[in-house]
């Protein structure tokens, strides 16, 4: 008999989603049943282990996220030598903070300046720097963003409420399976007295994708 993974993950979740009150029997949506099928076949054949799947989900639901990237940015803001290493070769510099892993093997960090604003996309699929940003938001994976980020980056930024001076050039970076980009945003004004942790709290996910800017100190209270 095959081992059964994560029995609780779907039980009780999707009941009565269609509005009917079932007297007996549970429901699995077609896609839930299909995923269960794949998972059980792969476990049965020994390709994946239930505990490993649970650990991966725990890691990406609770441990990996943009707070990691925010630490990287804050360090770069306070430590010029770290910033230089980060821009020269992202992956080992990021590893100095104990951050790394799948999706971050070849990190390239691009720095915003008053003259240049950087924007990251994956036109092929949804390649994203997981170790520093976690998993991508829905809009990052949508065809509209994938296409428009390249064709009309200024329009995309406007949709996010970000209007840059006409003199600021926008550079779009297309992530691939091998190379993942992260933006090093400019340090906000009025943050001279803040320590690294307080600075990290100003760094948003979108500011590291390039669709936003870091918060100002007053915004992060």
């Amino acid at each position: 008999m095959p081992a059964e993974p994560d029995q609780d993950s779907i039980v009780g979740h999707d009941h009565d989603h269609d509005g009917h009150d079932h007297d007996h029997g549970s429901t699995l949506s077609p896609i839930e049943a299909r995923v269960r099928a794949l998972e059980s076949l792969l476990i049965e054949k020994g390709y994946v282990q239930p505990a490993a799947l649970d650990a991966l989900i725990e890691r990406y639901e609770h441990q990996v996220g943009p707070h990691n990237g925010a630490r990287v940015v804050a360090r770069a803001w306070v430590d010029p030598s770290f910033r230089a290493r980060l821009l020269a070769d992202g992956t080992p510099a990021i590893a100095e903070l104990g951050i790394g892993g799948r999706g971050g093997e070849h990190m390239v960090v691009v720095e915003n300046t008053p003259e240049t604003h950087n924007l990251v996309v994956c036109t092929l699929c949804s390649c994203y720097p997981w170790p520093v940003l976690g998993l991508p938001p829905v809009w990052y994976k949508a065809p509209a963003y994938r296409a428009r980020a390249v064709l009309d980056p200024r329009g995309v930024l406007a949709d996010f409420g970000l209007r840059l001076p006409d003199t600021t050039r926008i550079t779009v970076w297309d992530s691939t399976a091998e190379t993942r980009f992260m933006v090093l945003p400019m340090r906000p004004a009025g943050t001279d007295g803040l320590d690294e942790a307080a600075l990290a709290a100003l760094v948003t996910r979108d500011s590291m994708i390039g669709t936003g800017l870091p918060l100002s100190p007053g915004d992060a209270a």
């Binding site: 993974p5 994560d6 993950s9 779907i10 979740h13 999707d14 949506s29 896609i31 839930e32 995923v35 269960r36 794949l38 998972e39 792969l42 390709y47 994946v48 282990q49 490993a52 799947l53 649970d54 991966l56 989900i57 990406y60 639901e61 996220g65 943009p66 707070h67 925010a70 799948r102 976690g134 998993l135 938001p137 990290a200 709290a201 100003l202 760094v203 948003t204 996910r205 979108d206 918060l215 915004d219 992060a220």
Partner: peptide, 28 residues
């Protein structure tokens, strides 16, 4: 904090998490 506000749950449904984990496990 702003960064925690900025990090919604990455999976909308449990099956999404299962698919993700299977793919990453096969990559690993």
């Amino acid at each position: 904090s702003a960064t925690s506000c900025d990090a919604p749950r990455p999976f909308a449904e449990p099956w999404e998490a299962q698919v993700f984990a299977i793919v990453v496990a096969l990559q690993d």
